[in-house]
Write a protein that binds this DNA or RNA. Sequence first.
DNA 1: TCAAACTTTCACATCAGTGTGAAGGCAAGC
DNA 2: GCTTGCCTTCACACTGATGTGAAAGTTTGA
Lengths: 123, 123
Amino acid sequence: MRIGQLSERTGVPTRMLRYYEEQDLLHPERADNGYRQYPESAVYRVQQIRGLLDSGLTTEIIRRILPFLDRTDAIHLDPQCLTPELAGLLEAEAARIQQRVECLSRNRDAIHAYLAAVRALRG
Amino acid sequence: MRIGQLSERTGVPTRMLRYYEEQDLLHPERADNGYRQYPESAVYRVQQIRGLLDSGLTTEIIRRILPFLDRTDAIHLDPQCLTPELAGLLEAEAARIQQRVECLSRNRDAIHAYLAAVRALRG
DNA sequence: TCAAACTTTCACATCAGTGTGAAGGCAAGC
DNA sequence: GCTTGCCTTCACACTGATGTGAAAGTTTGA
């Protein structure tokens, strides 16, 4: 599909889709006329990128972990490409993500607890 | 304590502590000479702010939810200050935080699954 | 008293993510 | 053919979070 349709289906402006490509997060083919050609899977890929960006990850981090997050895991399982360094990097990134999860969970719980307490007081 | 010590104890540059004050996240007293005076509790407060920023929340959102996240919950439980609008805002923010948590958890799991799969292949 | 280390405010710079618009090529319908 | 709408690249600008440095006042200790 072309960039306009991908934009419509994901709700992400075309400007951003081009930016993600520039940041090496998307790699659309090009038609003869130069138009970008996205596969169906790009819809999910874009949603994934958005979710990660909204969660505070930078495009640089996303670029590094994205190849291992694809739904079509199988094709990425070539162990050759996983050097010890890369494994360490992934471990570290997973740990940092876990930190975020814990911090956010804590604060979400605190908000809920506050709301519940006020409601209880009011009866 | 003064800004230098707070910086040292939290690992957050003084520049950032002043910025957080400008953003209404911190409210230190002032000594006679104009120096900022932070209470002991500021250490935890700063760590909380950092965690939330690192998780992708903006200072604006943090400013709005911070009053309800303090460890000294009791003093914030005055139901008078919780208008229906504010309650809705907090609910919405908690929901958005939950979205982040889910996205990050998913991707953390995917990284771990990838690493486990490669390790299994290698024996 | 003097120097070093701290503080203050102010300002300019950077980086990532995003908005917006110009100037032009391509495509589909009237 | 012409218009309309999508596409291309390029570029300038903004915002939020941060780095950095200048100029000046304060505190502390030799």
